[in-house]
């Protein structure tokens, strides 16, 4: 359990910076095809913004803004979407993650691959976001810790 950090400057700065980090993370995810970055890097940045708010505002406010159950849900949903997008081409006679075989009506081969890569990037981003926040929550959860007097 993290208590609220007792500095107005740190609190105001991080609450201003966290949305900017998230916008940049979504930019990195959405432009993963042609610029450096992608689902993993964007997901790490999203997790970093969430963890920043938890560290500075404290666990209570941080859990209210992004509940731990939502983190687990995002992680599971991301992996599920990745597996789904990977297996749909298998059922239609292609290879695993063969984006050209995705059943998207009214889209040519190139557009199908474009949409497939974008969807996979977004699901990887959500999976990484959720998993890293779950790891952080498990590390800072109250109880069963050796040092209860640290920052709790």
């Amino acid at each position: 359990m993290i208590s609220r950090y007792d500095s107005l400057m740190a609190r105001v700065t991080s609450t201003f910076i966290a949305p900017a980090i998230q916008v940049y993370a979504f930019y990195v995810i959405a432009h993963g095809h042609y610029s450096p970055g992608g689902g993993f890097q964007g997901g790490v940045m999203l997790a970093a913004s969430t963890v920043l708010l938890r560290f500075v505002l404290g666990s209570e406010e941080g859990y209210r803004r992004f509940p731990p159950r939502r983190a687990a849900l995002f992680g599971a949903l991301g992996v599920l979407c990745f597996a789904l997008i990977g297996t749909v081409p298998l059922l239609r006679g292609g290879a695993f993650l063969d984006y050209g075989m995705l059943p998207i009506v009214g889209a040519g081969e190139a557009l199908r691959r474009y949409i497939g890569i974008l969807l996979v990037e977004v699901s990887i981003g959500f999976a990484v976001w959720g998993s890293l926040v779950v790891i952080f929550d498990a590390l800072t959860a109250p109880g069963n810790g050796a040092d209860e007097g640290g920052r709790s």
Binding site: M45, A48, V51, L139, T140, A146, D147
Partner: peptide, 19 residues
């Protein structure tokens, strides 16, 4: 993003659990 950003935070969080 990972090495300079999040790993440090996770390691500090792990340090607070150490005795």
């Amino acid at each position: 993003a990972l090495g300079a950003g999040l790993t440090g935070v996770l390691l500090v969080a792990a340090l607070h659990r150490l005795e």
